[in-house]
């Protein structure tokens, strides 16, 4: 075998190996970065839409009540807590409440 030809063949194998290693390493890096990107980008998107996973507060529930229920009718004088889920579900259907507003309303009806 011609020594220069053998040297060229070794160089091709070396560059090919380096390229394959680089591609593999980069794909591993991208895969490893994906959860990190999700975990950093998701709260940003949630903060923009206001759909954070934090539990709704009483103030959120009071706001939902004011924005939806009391627009049409006067509030009832009061009701036992063990019907609060039924009333909140009824209002979810009547007022087409979002899941988050429904949670907030349920929280408002159950302050403890």
């Amino acid at each position: 075998m011609n020594p220069s030809k053998a040297h060229r063949t070794h160089r091709v194998w070396l560059y090919g190996g380096l390229l394959a290693a680089a591609v593999t390493a980069s794909s591993v890096t991208v895969r490893a970065q994906q959860p990190t990107q999700q975990s950093t980008s998701k709260p940003t998107a949630q903060a923009k839409t206001g759909s954070t996973k934090t539990p709704p507060t009483m103030a959120d529930g009071a706001r939902v009540y004011g924005e939806n229920c009391s627009r049409c009718h006067n509030p009832p004088e009061g009701f036992p807590q063990h019907v609060s889920g039924t009333i909140a579900r009824h209002m979810r259907m009547r007022a087409s409440l979002s899941e988050q507003d429904w949670d907030a309303l349920l929280r408002f009806f159950n302050p403890k």
Binding site: H82, G85, T86, R89
Partner: peptide, 9 residues
């Protein structure tokens, strides 16, 4: 807890 809030009205 869920059942306790879901008494029919």
């Amino acid at each position: 807890h869920a059942v306790a809030q879901d008494t029919p009205v």
